[in-house]
Amino acid sequence: MARNITARNSGLLAAALLLTSISSCAAPPQEGPTSSAPEWATYTTADSSLRFEHPSGWDIRELPARANDPAGGVSLEVVDDGGRVLARLDTGIITDLSCSEPAEPASYVEYESVPMPALESKQGSDQRFVYRSLAPSGGLAAQATYAVVSGQQQSPECGLFDFFTLTESSGGRFAGEYAAGSGASQEEYFEGVSRYRETQEYRDLREMLTSLRNAD
């Protein structure tokens, strides 16, 4: 049975259409420490709406905005010193969700959740950083993301929707995906997901994402 969920002014869910197009497609992450005490820089988005901190060795690349809100938005990606995409930020995103109930439930796990009170939404939602994974039913590929989200995960059978609410009409996405080497089994993938939490790179990513806040 198909379900249709619309989230515009009262809450934001991700569209499967957008999920594919704006996911970070990073190469397999380094699982050893990248730095013990990186220097940090502050970045403010081009529309002066948001700012966040990032290790100074990571670059910010501004991209053509994917916003579908008439009010506009911005898009950018964060890359390491080797050019690997670590995370992507998009704002001005209005989304709809439509998916079908699977025959079997998906396996959803949250490894870490951090409140983000400095990121305020005009829709009144509570924002948080989350690192989580999903093992879909039906033989679909497993997925793990680190992301800024609003509220609790809903409908995990429809995938990981890494979006947060922001303005009265739209929201955004600040997220990246853990990527294992090609040919890894699902068991090996989830072992890597768990180990990644112990790396300096993950800690830096968590600090960067949780620093996202309103600039005005």
Rank of each mutant, 00 (worst) to 15 (best):
L86I: 02
A175Y: 13
L97K: 07
S185R: 08
E77D: 15
R195H: 06
V109H: 10
C99P: 05
R61V: 09
E207Q: 13
A141R: 08
L119K: 12
E77M: 10
A67T: 00
G92Q: 04
S35P: 06
L97S: 07
G57W: 05
G32K: 15
A27Y: 12
A37K: 11
R195V: 00
A7C: 04
P115T: 10
R213N: 05
C25V: 09
I93V: 08
V74K: 10
E101F: 06
L119D: 15
E187H: 05
E191N: 12
Y108F: 15
Q123C: 03
S170Q: 01
A179K: 12
I22H: 08
L140H: 03
Q153W: 00
A144E: 05
A26K: 12
A65S: 15
P115D: 15
S211Q: 06
V79I: 13
L97N: 10
W58H: 08
S24L: 04
R88S: 14
A16P: 04
C99E: 06
G159R: 01
Y146I: 01
E198M: 02
G183I: 10
S100N: 13
R197W: 04
A135M: 01
F129S: 13
S100E: 14
Q143F: 03
V193T: 07
A135R: 00
G183Q: 09
V85F: 09
A147T: 04
E120S: 06
D69S: 01
A27Q: 14
Y111F: 15
Y131F: 14
A184R: 13
A2V: 13
T42L: 13
L63M: 07
P102R: 02
D162K: 03
Y178W: 10
S155V: 02
W40D: 11
N4D: 12
G171A: 03
F190V: 11
S98E: 10
P102G: 03
L97I: 01
